[in-house]
Design a binder for these strands. Sequence first.
DNA 1: CATGAATGAGCGTTCATTCAT
DNA 2: TATGAATGAACGCTCATTCAT
Lengths: 202, 202, 202, 202
Amino acid sequence: MAKLSEKMKALVSENMRHVILETSERIIIRDGLDNLTMKQLAEEAEISAGSIYNYFQNKEEIVSGIMDRAFERLLDSLEAIAGRPLPAADKLRAMAVFMFGDFPQVRKLHEALMHRLPPPDRKNLRNRHRRLLDILTGTIRQGIEAGEFSVCEPVLAASAFLGIIRELQFDPGEMFSGLEPELLAEKAAGIYLSGIKCGAEP
Amino acid sequence: MAKLSEKMKALVSENMRHVILETSERIIIRDGLDNLTMKQLAEEAEISAGSIYNYFQNKEEIVSGIMDRAFERLLDSLEAIAGRPLPAADKLRAMAVFMFGDFPQVRKLHEALMHRLPPPDRKNLRNRHRRLLDILTGTIRQGIEAGEFSVCEPVLAASAFLGIIRELQFDPGEMFSGLEPELLAEKAAGIYLSGIKCGAEP
Amino acid sequence: MAKLSEKMKALVSENMRHVILETSERIIIRDGLDNLTMKQLAEEAEISAGSIYNYFQNKEEIVSGIMDRAFERLLDSLEAIAGRPLPAADKLRAMAVFMFGDFPQVRKLHEALMHRLPPPDRKNLRNRHRRLLDILTGTIRQGIEAGEFSVCEPVLAASAFLGIIRELQFDPGEMFSGLEPELLAEKAAGIYLSGIKCGAEP
Amino acid sequence: MAKLSEKMKALVSENMRHVILETSERIIIRDGLDNLTMKQLAEEAEISAGSIYNYFQNKEEIVSGIMDRAFERLLDSLEAIAGRPLPAADKLRAMAVFMFGDFPQVRKLHEALMHRLPPPDRKNLRNRHRRLLDILTGTIRQGIEAGEFSVCEPVLAASAFLGIIRELQFDPGEMFSGLEPELLAEKAAGIYLSGIKCGAEP
DNA sequence: CATGAATGAGCGTTCATTCAT
DNA sequence: TATGAATGAACGCTCATTCAT
């Protein structure tokens, strides 16, 4: 009986954390990190300001929590793609499609958070980013070993891939907002894989 | 006489704006945007806090001003490169080298500011970004017309180029901090131009 | 049957009050009054925060309760000494020794609480203090009647005695922290009894 | 001109510090340290809460400032008395009279603050207390050398003197509130100097 | 124009107390 | 009774902006 009650409480508690994180994420995406205040958060989450501190030590922990969730989702999905029995180029295409299509708000999150983390989070960011690069690097290495890709520096190539995706997602010039995500991803992958030079790698 | 005096005043005023912007930029690069306070700015610019408001409406206008200047410098330099009598690929390489080497602190500025602009600045950002893309797009078009580049979509290609540069500059995984800027630029341009696929563009 | 059950309940209840007071006292002595929070208290007393309110109206009542207990202990001990068949001077010496030696943490308690009582407690403090003075005054009167002490104003003399003890216990200059409590008590009593003037009471 | 203006500003600024300290002191004496809030202080000093921080780094600095002022006043006055060409016993009597008569609110201040200082202030307190003891100890030594006082331990004797004064000032039993300060001081000095024992120091 | 003290809304956070379970 | 999450007023403090001088 006690067990059941404890489980209930744990469930409720986990749900509260979830609600708080969801609400915070929504506010950040809508108004930017600077406009995420504990008061605003409490209001939108329909709890009191003090209650938040039953579930998170402080504001920073909430922001970190959001980053964690978003990254985990991203890494999980990419890892799943990396595990498929496909040629490396197809994996990269799939990853591009995924990043474009499934993460419209993660993009906004990254926009808002990526460049403004307090020092303790920076280290986390670096490590998570390395895990992301690892997945891409692995796929690129697979392509090289299979003779599919030219012998390049995989880490740098992985970063370049990421950069292309990010830039087209962020799209500060608002040039591509009309395009289908899938199409955009295809084109990005095309440029990345073939380069733009005529008769490259003859 | 009055005219001359007015010109003097305008000159002095412009100089004050310059000093304020320079100082703000230094603070942002050194301490981050969150640590740019009007008091700190006044102190380092050796004027009073109140005086700043004679030259700028508010803090936001200062931050916008910094973005403006940084962008203008960037665009001027890239336009100069674009105007040289060189093959398009060499121009892109030169642009990459320039962005990596000459703008280490502009990178910090972008990091700090790019993703945190209040709505009115967003529009400015879009327009400026489009001008940046225009320069790159023009160079890429030149390459296509010269038969140097394959027939691709130039705007998308320009964005991809930018994305690669930005990602390697930001380098959140801290993978490339040991490399020479020129070398990194060369490698980035190489990947961009040739792609990574074996036997691309057969 | 019901009576017995009620007694049980009263016993349990009294025990709970005891535990709460003990725990509060430990926290105050260890961390100071400002660090006695209901949460901390609940945790260390191994009950829930809400339960405390079944035994005490509010935090203030707890603090008062601690004062009460500490005072009662002090008064009981002093009364026991006062009841011994000894010369008055020896009683005072014994009281000094007792206060120095046996109540090191009561001293901390007094430090933390004595001067910070809310108005309702002030009255309690006054009455308790008078009881304390009564014991001392009685002993001093005994000394006077026995021809042991000079004819002085006993209440004032009792207060002076208390003041000497308190000052040496509190020792804000940290001048006596190395001395044995017994020795310090002896010296304090010596000064108190004989004064410092040469050839006093000619 | 500039000099004059600067002096004016320094004067105004010093006056503001004074007003803030006075007001804080009044609140502490009236309501206790716990009820000294920045808001309350601002209200009673008739300035805004933010303005306070133009004159003090933080609340702690204000409390320290109050302690400093009170102690300096006390030490200055006692030093002046110690410098008079009087027998030691008369100096001590004068000091007692001074402490009783001239510092009714310093007493309340000490009550409120003495036992609750944050660690950085504790050290200050210790040092100031030692200076206080130094003055008393010097006077007692003078008495010993002059053959006026018996050969006792001067530091301990000084502490005892202080303790008697403090206890009678604090007067938690409210036994002496009707007495004239001068009379009380006289009696306290009498007990201190002669002790209470019959035929002491024959 | 220059100054810098004054302002006061707003911040993140704490904690005694309440109350549905 | 026991629980512990929920509450919300209050805290110390910051800082963009204003304005009398």
